[in-house]
Amino acid sequence: MSTGRRRLRRAAGQLASVAITLLGLLVLTFFIGRMMPADPVRAIVGEDATPETYDMVHAQLGLDRPLWAQFLRYMGDVLTGNFGQSIRTGQPVIQDILHVMPATIELATFAIVIGAGLGIPLGVLAAVNRDRWIDHAVRVFSLFGHSMPIFWTGMIGLLVFYAWLGWVGGSGRMDYFYIGMVPGRTGFLLIDSLLAGRWEVFRSAVNHLILPAALLGYSASAYITRMTRSFMLDQLNQEYMTTARVKGLSRGQTIWRHAFGNIRVQLVTIVALSYGALLEGAVLIETVFAWPGFGQYLTNNLVIGDMNAVMTCVLIVGVIFILLNLLSDVLYRLFDPRTK
């Protein structure tokens, strides 16, 4: 009984903490939005509007009211899902973002699969061969991935693998002549093309996806490798590893069944956190690969100074980050028997 209540209390505490962080996010984005030196009214009415028009728009935007009232209005807008219009497309910002999000999720998901598929085995390998040359090689390899300016690696990758070798597709999500050929039912091109039964579109999509996803995944794998290695080292020194060996298990079996089995929960949380960090790399890599996703949307609006769209993007990334943190926490609680 009391454990149930304790768990409830903890869940409530966590929810409150998330709510406070979300409120903080709003305050932050609100103030960054107001910091802008450019005049948002001018941006809308143009240079040669009459003072009357100017004042009208000024009042319309609520800029004549005190700051706290403006903030309340902003909060109300956000809570009701009203993020304003995009200057560039004239659409509601949130609709734009929902439209570009699948492209980014597709890229980031592919990337995290590559990153985890690379980082976890390498981390285990490094831990098992601690301080031997394999360990050092893995360390240099992963630090290298962590040190690449990803926008540059993306350009070099395009130059080498697309322009020179022709192994992969170039910019964008597919070859241009396929654009519009499959109906965008889910927004995920790989799924849509399969649903439409267009194999050639699917192939083209994979061809275009593989390079940016691999680069993103490689850069994300550094953190995953490091954490896997250190989690594994913790486990390898535990006494229960000796128990397993005494029972007659081989070294490989003890490593995979016992040590690795015991870090799986921790790894899930690390991968979830890395997924959030991937979004950061996605902003740069999408710019390089003309990937019509969230990152490109953000940078395009940065360039034209549409702060409304920019701050909405920032807010959404912040929310995704918080949710991923929460998710990794919840996963940990669910799957680690010791927390029950």
Binding site: E239, Y240, T243, V246, K247, G248, G261, N262
Partner: peptide, 20 residues
């Protein structure tokens, strides 16, 4: 190991796998 010769370790707090 385990079949013909085995060993009982000192502290079950550490010698048992905590999550199995």
């Amino acid at each position: 190991r385990g079949r013909r010769m085995s060993m009982i370790l000192q502290d079950p707090k550490f010698s048992l796998n905590p999550i199995q």
